[in-house]
Design a protein around this nucleic acid. Structure first.
Lengths: 347, 347
DNA sequence: TTGTATGCGTTATCAG
DNA sequence: CTGATAACGCATACAA
């Protein structure tokens, strides 16, 4: 019940020294004699003294926390990103204060303000949804405003601006590549399924269209928007009765799962008659049966890298950092695609 | 870059009043004339003044944050619990600072200290792992120590002690009930698969054993420990070559997924030849094919309830609260169990 | 090497 | 209704 009632003055008195000395001991200053150090440490351990974080924060203007904003933490992919970030941040002595904004602009703004009001040292936005659609600049103004106060990092999205650092995945290239491979195997009726108009989703779409165009395949009705819900996707595909489909690229693994359920329901063979490619290589991909081949954007590395950049910036190295880095994606082949080696067998 | 350089003195000066008045306006005191209020608010909005959270914290001894400790946030179930908690806490004006401890005692202790050092108002442990095994009291001492500083809440685990509040699920009753139903349908070779010796897991085990005993079924080699990994579970079950199995109850959905993969691999029919019951009713259960029937412990309600209790305690109502509440579980029937109505057809 | 004194930005207490 | 001022607990520049 009773909070830590013991402060640095008490410790100083009990140790027979000044508060300055106690502070020095606690902060590992070398300008203190071993004897005094021991004397102080004895008291500190005896009474279990821990410095008041608020007082420290007030003086130093930092409590060594970074804010993490995600649309929702119950999404498998976001959760794993947060897990990586937290783990890395802790190594550098930073704690993280988490906030879930939802996908609406109002929530993003409110939660950003809330986080900033806690005097975080830096702010990380996780998810392409924060990048807006790239067209309407109003939808990202709150990020630029936040960047006036602390360095801002965006994982999987690009927003231009002072003090804003972005990591983007080479989604366009990845989908272009995968679509090309599918076409190379003779697939002609490929669908791209997405649930959003985010920066990331738009890039995937671009890569998809480019590959179709280059192969001379009509893009009409090939890019389809669905609700991000397993059942909704399944029902949607079932409703496409007459449509010929021999491959599906999904903007995330949830959608891919819906596609799998659709195929199983219809008795369509995977991958022989229908290839499915998921995105994010989340835990869902392996929990599915058949297991989903999924595009991996190397979240772990990106998160680690992001934290390192944060630390560097907070140490005052900002000038040396690039404001945007992009990382390639790769396909993790599982059971919903034909392996390159199996192609000949199939054809 | 530059932090908010404007403080309450500046605002006071610009508005031609004292800092006390500014503070009063900001905190909605009614003891201030409308004219003065407007005068102050004009300045506040013009310069975009936000009070320094550290200074406030120092004075009030709170920053309105609660700590949340989970073993790992990348677990689907934990993530959804955190999502619920965060959502509720925000409604009451509390932010949450998240920490991932892992499953080892050392991590739990370290992270608890870390969280406490940030002067959180309350601490929530999410997951049965924090309850230890119920035998060795040393494994939960850090929780009692934490409870000396702030009210502690445990979701899905019981630790006795002053200032500790627990919500436990009626896991024993649930598994007892489910096992009974399976036996009622003629299942004789039922396995209980778990990955831990946690409080929760032990209770499930108890319910399982009780049901077997009452039905006169030999319990030998029916409770098995596995690694919490889809592939490991699958391989483990495959290694049980000769063993007859007609039903599996898993301590979580991940393990259940492994069981599904085992059955599919072997060509065993689900649910006709093998019924599988998962636990937690997580997103994984529906992402699987066939979809897994899973025991739901109503996390959403528990989280909501927990937050309400926190708020009440922080408002000084502690005496009125029970230290332990338990909530019943229920089975969400999907495709890996026979429905009651289908039983007769099967027999 | 150690101690003194001050600032950090609020809120709250007490006068007026 | 409003203003002056004392906490809150720590770090640090400056003195000794």
């Amino acid at each position: 019940m009773q909070k830590n009632t013991c402060n640095i003055y008490d410790v100083a008195k009990m140790a027979g020294v000044s508060t300055a000395t106690v502070s020095r001991v606690l902060n590992g200053s070398d300008k203190v004699s071993p004897r005094t150090r021991d004397k102080v440490m004895d008291v500190v351990t005896k009474v279990g003294f821990t410095p008041n974080a608020f007082a420290k924060g007030l003086g130093m203007n930092t409590m060594h926390t970074v804010g993490i904003l995600v649309p929702t933490i119950s999404d498998t992919y976001m959760a794993s990103a947060v897990a990586y970030l937290e783990k890395e941040l802790v190594t550098y002595g930073y704690d993280c204060i988490l906030s879930c904004s939802g996908f609406e602009l109002a929530g993003k703004q409110t939660k950003t303000e809330l986080l900033l009001s806690k005097h975080i040292d830096s702010l990380i936005y996780v998810g392409s949804t924060y990048a807006g659609n790239g067209k309407d600049i109003h939808t990202t103004n709150y990020i630029r405003r936040a960047a006036k106060q602390v360095p801002v990092f965006i994982i999987n999205g690009n927003v231009a601006g002072e003090n804003i650092y972005a990591s983007v995945f080479e989604d366009e290239a990845a989908v272009y590549e995968m679509t090309g491979r599918l076409i190379g195997r003779g697939r002609k009726h490929i669908l791209f399924l997405t649930d959003s108009h985010s920066y990331s989703s738009n890039n995937k779409k671009k890569g998809f269209r480019k590959a179709l165009k280059e192969a001379g395949i009509d893009e009409k009705d090939k890019v389809l928007y669905v609700e991000n819900d397993v059942y909704a996707v399944k029902e949607f595909l079932l409703s496409l009765e007459g449509k010929k489909i021999d491959a599906i690229i999904a903007a995330n693994d949830d959608i891919a799962i819906g596609a799998v359920k659709y195929a199983l329901h219809r008795g369509i063979r995977i991958p022989e008659d229908l290839e499915i490619i998921g995105y994010n290589n989340s835990y869902l991909a392996v929990s599915s049966s058949p297991e989903i081949s999924s595009i991996d954007n190397h979240t772990a590395e990106i998160c680690k890298d992001t934290v390192e950049r944060i630390i560097r910036i907070l140490s005052g190295e900002e000038n040396t950092l690039k404001h945007k880095i992009s990382v390639p994606c790769s396909l993790v082949e599982r059971e919903t695609t034909l392996r390159e080696s199996e192609e000949s067998a199939k054809l």
